[in-house]
Structures are given as C-alpha cells and as structure tokens.
Design a protein around this nucleic acid. Structure first.
Lengths: 221, 221, 221, 221
DNA sequence: AATGAATGAGGGTTCATTCAT
DNA sequence: TATGAATGAACCCTCATTCAT
C-alpha cells in the first residue's frame, strides 16, 4: 500500500492529487540532483510507492519533466499576473514580478519548479516549452524596456539582463535550502535587490563616489 | 583517418593537443546540452573520429567531466590572479575579477568551461572539485566583504550575492553564442555592469568616464 | 515470461531461489567453458530469461563469480566439518575429507562449484577468496602433516601434494558429466583412491624395489 | 626499436625466432594469468615491442593460443618418444613419461606450455587440438592398461586416472615458480611419486586393511 | 490501483585488429 | 619491419517501460 496522503475525495480528484504529487516530488529531485541523476525508482521510493505505480499517473518520465516545466512557467505566469495587479513604473513592476516569482519558486509549491533540463524533453514538448519560455523572457524584456522608456530604469541590453536574471534564478535550486538561514521571502527580497538596484535610476544608489575604473557607471549599460 | 587539425608537432605534443581537443569539444557539448544528453558517440562524431579513439586520450567519460571542471576552475584562478595584479578598492577588484572571468569563459578556451553537473563525477573527483569550487566562491565572498569594509560596496548578504553571480554565469553556456550579436568581452562588460552596479556605492552613476584599462568603455554597453 | 522453475513459496524465498539459480547456472557455465567465455547473455539464455533480468538477482558478473567461489569454498568447509565428525588417523581423516569434498562437488549443488578464475574478481573479493582458499589448503596440509606424524602417511612435500590434489579436483568440471558412466560418488571414491593410496603407509611402499631410473624413490617425496 | 634478442641469422630464421618468442611469451602469460586476462598489449609490453608488431609474426590472438596448445602437445609427444626409448614394465614406462612430461613443462621451454583454455580456439583449431589431446590422453590410458596387463599396476579406471593426472599437471602453472623452493625436476619427481605410487603394485597395496568407511578399497578403482 | 518481475534499448568500455607512415 | 593511432565489434550494465497478478 502506498503512502499517499489520503483524503476523502472523488476518485478523479484523488487521481489528479496523486499525479500532482508525483510531478512535484520528481521535480524537486530533478531540480536538486538533475533529471538524469534521478531515476524513477528514486522518485518512487520518496513517495513510498513502487515504480510501476507511477505509471498510473503519468505517461512517462519525459511527461513528468514536461509538467515540471509547465509548472515552473505557470508560476512565472502567476508572477506576471500579480505584477499586472500592482501597476507602477516599469521598475516597480519588474521588481514586483521578480520578487513574486522568486518567492513562489522557493515556496512549497515551487521549490521544485525550476529546471534547466530542456534537451531531454520530447521534441514536440521542447518546442512548446521553448515557446512559453521565450514568451516569458520576452515579457521580462518588455518590462525592462518599459522601465527604460518611462525613465525608471537605465539603459542596458535587455536580453542580456534577462538572461542574467534567469541564470541567477535557475541556479537557486542547487543552493536554496527551505530549512536554511534565509527564508524564501528574504532570498526573494535580497536577490531582487541585488539584481535590480543597479538598474533602477530613481535611487542614486549611494553617495557620490567616483565611478570605478572600469567605466561601470549607472546608465552606461 | 580522423580529422584532427594536423599540425607538425612532436608526437607528445600532438597527443596532448588531441586530448585537449577531446576535452574541449566534450565540454562544449556538455555545457550546451548537458553531460547526460551527450553520448561519447556524439563527441566522437563532432571530432569526426570513432568512439573508441577517444579512449586513446582519456580514461573515461567521467575523466572528461572532471577535466572540464578543472579547466573552468583554472579559468577562475586566472581571473583571481589577474585581479591580484590590479589592486584597488574591494569593488574594483571584484569588478576586475568578474569581468575577466566572464570574458575568459566566453573566449575560445573557456566557452566550454562552465558546468553544472557535479553528481556524475567520481566521488573522489567530486570532492576535489567541491573543494576548489568552495574556495573559489569564498574568494568572491571575501572580495565582497573587503568591499563592504572599505566602503566601496554596500552591505548585502555576500553568500547570496555570490550565488547570484554564479548562477548568472553558469547559465551563460546555454545562451551565449560566440558568433552572436555580442562578443564575449561585451557580454563580460555588461554582465559585470548589471551584477555589480547595484552593489557599488558611490556611483554618481553616469557622466562620461574614460575607458577602463580593460577596454571597457563607459556608455558602450 | 521467464521459465524459472515455479514453486509456491513466499516472494522472498522465490527471490533467493532465483538468485541461487542464476549463480548455479552461471557457475556451471563458468566452470565448463570459463568465466570470460561465458557472457551474461549466455547465462540468461540458459535460464530462458533476458539479460536484464539477471540484474534483479545479482549486482554484476563479478558478484556471480564471487558467489561461485564462496559456494565452492563452503562445500570445502562442509567437507572439513564432516571429517571432524569422523575422527581417525590422519590418513583416514584426509581420506574422508577428500572423498566428501569431491562427492559434493559432483553433486547437484556443487557441479558448478570449482573455479579457477581468480583474476577477474574484484580486488577486495579476490583477497577474501584468496584468504579462504589459503586456509582451505592449509587445512589439507595440516591433515597431511598429522598423518605423517601419526605414521599413517609417508613423508611427502605436503604443499606439493595439496597442489596436486587441488589440480586434479579443479580439472573435474571439464570432464565430469553427471549423466556419464561414473556417478559422482564413484568418481569421488576412485579419485580419492588414486590420490591417496600412494601416500598411505600400511603399504610398505616399496620393498627393495630399486629406485626408479629417475631418482624417484618410493618414500622419498 | 624492439628488443628482440638479436642474432645474426637469415631473415627467415629471424622471423621464426621472433614468432616463437611471441608465442612463448604469450603462452607464459596465458598459463599464469589466463588467456582472457592477458591482452596483446601485455604481451607486447613484455617483449618491449609495440602491439602492432606482433601481427608481423602471428595472424591473430587465437593463432597464438593454438600454437601454445600445439607446443604443449609437442612436449607431450616428446615425453612419449622419450618413454619409447626407455622400455620397461607398463608402470616404468608411465613413470618415465609422466616424469619427463612434467619436467619439460617446468623447463624453460615449457613453463608456458600448459593451457586450459580450449573454448577460445577457433572451431577448426579446437577440433585439431581436441584430437591431439585425445590421442595424448589415450596414449596415457594405453600405458596404464599395459601396466595393468603386465601386472605392474593395479586396476583402476584408466580414464579417470588420466584425468586426475592431467588436472594435477594443468594446475601447475598457477603455482609453480621456477625461482621457487623446488626445481622443476624435483617437482616432476615428487608429483610422479604422488600420482603413481598408489597405482604401482609391487606394493601389495592393500593387506587386509579394512575398507574405509567410504567404501574406498584399495584396488577397487 | 499497486506491485514486482521482466524486458530491451542505449550507452560506456575494452581490446583485437587494421592501416598509414 | 615497427609503430601508434584508429576502428568497431562485443559485452557489461542501467533504467525507463511494460505486464501479469
């Protein structure tokens, strides 16, 4: 007998609860140890279930990976929706989005949500994910551009900036520990701070200190 | 007949050139597609060589991975040495290091140099790499702390900041294209800018400032 | 569906029955054709099972080899225990042991039990096996010496004698046929006879028979 | 440059000298460590020659094995010829043959001469070797029968006896050390003693000694 | 639904063999 | 003839997937 959390639901609900549990647990492991370093046996063991059982809920391992990506992107979408509800300057919106995104990723639902493994996806899935991911990144780019237009952010290569953000975020599962020194919210706050402060005009970051020798000046991006 | 680049060298030199070619090509593939998504057959095909041939130059796939990690860390060391030769405030030194590191990673030698796959290493190798990587990150942390002490940087959680840097950098191989719109140096300059500007105190961010010694021109982003 | 002998047992019992079957079948093949001439595909085919299935029961091919050695040595131990229960002169004890050992090796359990392949063992296993085998041979040597001391055996180089015994026995799997002309017990009886008769005193070995032309003097061992 | 022993010979002679060296060295290694545990690289290294060079002298590894078997059987033939030149009772002739055979096998030429690996031979070679080996064993059997007929040996199953001899002899390469405590001749003498003393009459094998508990009666073979 | 056994494709590795120099 | 690099077949092993119970 497996050790799912039993709750009284219709069988369809149970089905999808279990399916979600599989995907979440797998995603957690995938993000921490990598897709290929995680066997379905590992996942099954974590769920105290036999490997065969997993196949009652998912078609195959690639589907799990696909769903994980979708989940991560769903979280992204939620972050964007959240931002839309809290309008402001481009910088403010971007900040809100990034913060929310990171916070959710560190939260219970999401800790498992970030994946770097794209090549293992089925080609058709890969395309879908790529499309969404591109859209996701484009939305960030648009926010940056908005910020530059409304003067709340200085000019930088927006694509490069987004790649930088994504990299920093994608790396999180490898070091973030929910039980660790910093809570998810704090991580979200500080990472947002680190990533955005340099780009936001409004706050003349610090007193008038001469620019570094490397010509790294705000607005010089 | 394989298609190695032929150059007239002593046989020992040729050996090590070929070995390096194997490692570099493999590393490139590993960083772009992932260690487990790259079979040695793939690598062999890229080198227009049969799979067995690879074994003339490396012991096994894990050794290749190990060497790739070492190469990446060597590059890190070189960045640190470079920084040591160019003293300044904490912020300046950190900036120099980051810039150099990223630039080298995008350069011919290093494009393949960033890897996230640690779990597939042999345990003893994993330990070595972990040790070096920790030292590497600690050096960054130390630079940050130095900067905070000397007032050239504002207070942030230094560990978190370094994780942020590392993530941004580790993600590069997935999007950086040596033939692309931005050269390695430009990427280095802009990423350094994005990552550090927010942390450096005292930039009246902008005015026109003369180019830094690193060819990094203000406003050129 | 595989063709294991089905018997109604608990699943754990079945597991270990199957494991034993794998080891026995493999051991049989190993002793008859050699370890390296027997692929796991061969073994699987004999068991009418696919190769992968074997890995449900054993860790790898080396483990099989190891278990085969252990089995053979276990048989040796049982022979020694048997002998201990039937005391007598050194010669009698040795005779009992050899007889029992050979008989068991030819029996159902043991036919597969004699192996010469030691180099293919994992180093740590090799050491274990070597230790046991040495102890095993030393016990034989001790029996011989006991016999010489109590006068029931004539003096020969005991080590050489034991090597001779071991060689004769180790060669058995190459020619012994359970369905053949001689039963295992008969083989045991006759080999023991051939090997020991010459060493047992009681037969005033030579009388005045002149030493052989080759300097081979009775009793001169 | 290889390190063959150079001697001034015609090129054909040199060829066959080198060929013999290859076979002998390989045979030595094969007997000690086993055919499959010995790579041609190993053999080449022992001869201080590159692997490719071996192929100037032999067609392939299987041919080497074949030649080793032939060599061992040649030695057997020489032992038989030697025996023919020294007539006597069946027991005496057998003793002479065994002694000579063992002695030669331990000698420089022959230490490598005993091989148990038959399955790795090419089928056609295997047949040839099997034929010769059978003839060889039959000659031994004939000697035994001769001895029984002329009363110089007691009755035992002659096939079984020969298998016993062969096993004891085939095992030698695994323990015999030319530099060891016992010389080849001594080993030959003592093994012959151990193996034959019990079979030679002259020693009224039995007296009224009660049969052992195991039904092992002298002369009952 | 859950299980555990069985399967087979995929990939790493070794090594006998070939071949250009 | 000698070499050392290259090759490819063979084999071990893992693991996602299937299936009978």
């Amino acid at each position: 007998m497996p050790r799912w959390k039993n709750e009284s639901k219709t069988s369809d609900e149970i089905q999808s609860i279990k399916r979600a549990a599989v995907i979440k647990q797998a995603g957690l492991a995938f993000s921490k140890r990598g897709y290929h370093n995680t066997s379905l046996d590992d996942v099954a063991k974590m769920l105290q279930v036999s490997k065969g059982t997993l196949y009652n809920y998912v078609k195959d391992k690639q589907e799990i990976l696909f769903e994980c990506h979708e989940m991560a992107l769903d979280i992204g979408d939620r972050a964007f929706r959240f931002a839309k509800d809290h309008p402001g300057t481009g910088a403010e919106v971007l900040e809100a989005t990034l913060y929310k995104y990171i916070e959710m990723l560190t939260g219970e639902l999401g800790a498992c949500g970030v994946l770097m493994e794209v090549d293992a996806l089925r080609p058709e899935d890969r395309e879908k994910i790529a499309k969404r991911r591109n859209a996701f990144e484009k939305s960030f780019v648009a926010m940056l551009q908005e910020g530059m237009k409304d003067g709340s952010m200085r000019a930088v290569d927006p694509k490069l900036a987004v790649f930088t953000f994504m990299g920093a975020i994608n790396w999180m599962p490898r070091w973030f520990d929910p039980e660790g020194r910093l809570s998810g919210s704090e991580v979200a706050r500080q990472m947002t701070d680190i990533l955005l402060t340099g780009l936001v005009t409004a706050k003349p970051p610090v007193h008038a200190k001469p620019a570094s020798r490397f010509g790294l000046k705000a607005g010089a991006g």
